[in-house]
Computed example of a mutant assay.
Amino acid sequence: MTYDRLVCANCAAPVSEGRCPVCRANRERLQQEGEGPFAALTPAALLTLLVLLIAAVAFLATRTA
């Protein structure tokens, strides 16, 4: 989940602005969690990669059979 749309329950400001200590702590936590290899990919991009992978496996299966 991205923090650019989250609203802080403590100060009612967007978490991405980091206005209060709660916002800053959650922003830092979300940034650290989002450092994986697929963190920057959108769900549409992940779905496209999955479809391409399935197509490649199907293609290789038909070539060897």
Rank of each mutant, 00 (worst) to 15 (best):
Ala25Gln: 15
Leu41Asn: 04
Gly18Cys: 00
Pro21Phe: 11
Gly18Thr: 05
Tyr3Gly: 08
Arg27Met: 07
Val22Ser: 11
Leu47Asp: 05
Leu46Thr: 08
Gly36Ser: 05
Ala13Asp: 13
Asn10Met: 13
Gly36Phe: 09
Phe38Pro: 01
Leu49His: 01
Thr62Arg: 09
Thr42Cys: 04
Pro21Trp: 12
Ala9Trp: 08
Cys23Thr: 05
Arg29Gln: 05
Ala55Lys: 10
Ala45Lys: 14
Leu47Thr: 14
Ala58Ser: 11
Arg24Tyr: 04
Met1Arg: 02
Thr64Lys: 06
Leu49Asp: 06
Asn26Arg: 13
Gly34Trp: 00
Leu6Pro: 05
Leu46Gly: 09
Gln32Glu: 11
Thr48Gly: 06
Leu60Asp: 02
Leu46Cys: 10
Ala44Trp: 11
Gly34Leu: 10
Cys11Gly: 07
Val7Lys: 08
Val22Leu: 08
Pro43Leu: 02
Asn26Val: 12
Cys11His: 09
Gln32Leu: 13
Val57Tyr: 06
Cys23His: 01
Asp4Glu: 12
Leu47Glu: 10
Cys11Trp: 11
Leu52Ser: 02
Arg5Ser: 15
Asn26Ala: 01
Cys8Ser: 13
Ala25Arg: 15
Cys8Ile: 14
Cys8His: 11
Cys8Trp: 06
Ala45Arg: 15
Leu60Trp: 02
Leu50Phe: 14
Leu47Pro: 01
Ala40Tyr: 04
Thr42Arg: 02
Thr64Phe: 00
Ala40Phe: 06
Leu49Arg: 13
Tyr3Trp: 06
Ala40Asp: 04
Val57Leu: 13
Leu53Ile: 10
Glu28Tyr: 05
Cys23Gln: 02
Glu35Ile: 01
Leu41Asp: 05
Ala58Asp: 07
Arg24Lys: 12
Ala58Pro: 01
Phe38Thr: 10
Ala39Thr: 04
Arg27Ile: 07
Gly34Pro: 09
Thr42Asp: 03
